[in-house]
């Protein structure tokens, strides 16, 4: 690694304060709440994820699904139009199908609940991609194609032939900074925090706003939760 300075340490004080994770329990279980009412489908979280993590063209760890007919296209039901967006990245499941099936333990749980990938151990069998019911894992199929002629981002590139996915920006958590998608969401639709703390913002929102987990019935126990869109008001 080149000399230089940790990019978090180099931030202006006000910026650094903005990204602080804030208070949490001694043994945090990191999680996130995504507010579907606030999500505007702008993909800022997905784009900063690409930038932060040096993800080559063609692969996205984080993407925004349109609950509609096509990208940014509503669906018509009983004469009424409706459209929502559903940001989707690794759900960091407590009962993670990917962790179970990895033949070499290259994908594993950290103590803080984050599902991680060891791309030095991964043999590239892609069984985890099969097992993931959320379709959030991607594979390095070939030489990285980047939009700029050098590696960007804040982490090292992963080797060809291995699987990768959202890391909840563990390299930022180490400096008590929220993941980059949380930082960059202009609509403030992503709330990060400690799910082991019953009074954390995510936990309170899950309680107050009928938060749910995707594919809850599969029993994967995700650490990412969603807040459903609000009911429209009458004028």
């Amino acid at each position: 690694m080149a000399d230089g300075i940790n990019p978090i340490d180099a931030l202006p004080p006000a910026s650094r304060a903005y990204g602080e994770i804030g208070p949490h329990s001694d043994r945090p279980r990191w999680g996130m709440v995504v507010d579907e009412e606030r999500c505007i489908g702008c993909w800022s979280c997905a784009v900063i994820c690409k930038s932060e993590n040096d993800i080559p063209l063609g692969n996205w760890w984080n993407r925004i699904l349109t609950d509609g007919e096509a990208l940014d296209t509503p669906a018509e039901q009983n004469g009424a139009l409706e459209m929502h967006w559903l940001p989707l990245a690794c759900q960091h499941c407590e009962n993670a199908p990917c962790v179970k099936v990895c033949p070499v333990g290259a994908t594993y749980h950290r103590d803080d609940g984050i599902v991680m990938m060891d791309t030095d151990r991964c043999i590239g069998c892609r069984y985890c991609m099969i097992a993931c019911p959320y379709g959030v894992r991607v594979f390095n199929w070939g030489a990285a194609e980047l939009p700029v002629p050098f590696d960007h981002g804040m982490v090292d590139a992963r080797p060809v032939g291995t699987v990768e996915k959202c890391t909840m920006c563990v390299h930022r958590l180490a400096d008590s900074q929220v993941p980059s998608c949380v930082w960059s969401c202009p609509a403030e639709a992503r709330i990060f925090g400690d799910l082991n703390d019953p009074e954390s913002r995510p936990n309170r929102l899950i309680r107050d706003r009928e938060g749910y987990a995707l594919l809850e019935d599969l029993g994967t126990k995700p650490n990412v939760h969603y807040l459903p869109p609000r009911r429209k008001a009458q004028l």
Binding site: L57, G58, N59, R63, G68, A70, T73, P133, G135, E145
Partner: peptide, 13 residues
């Protein structure tokens, strides 16, 4: 899985 548009990133541009 989760068959909503635009789907899964294919892996190559």
């Amino acid at each position: 899985p989760i068959g909503m548009p635009p789907g899964v990133s294919i892996g190559a541009p």
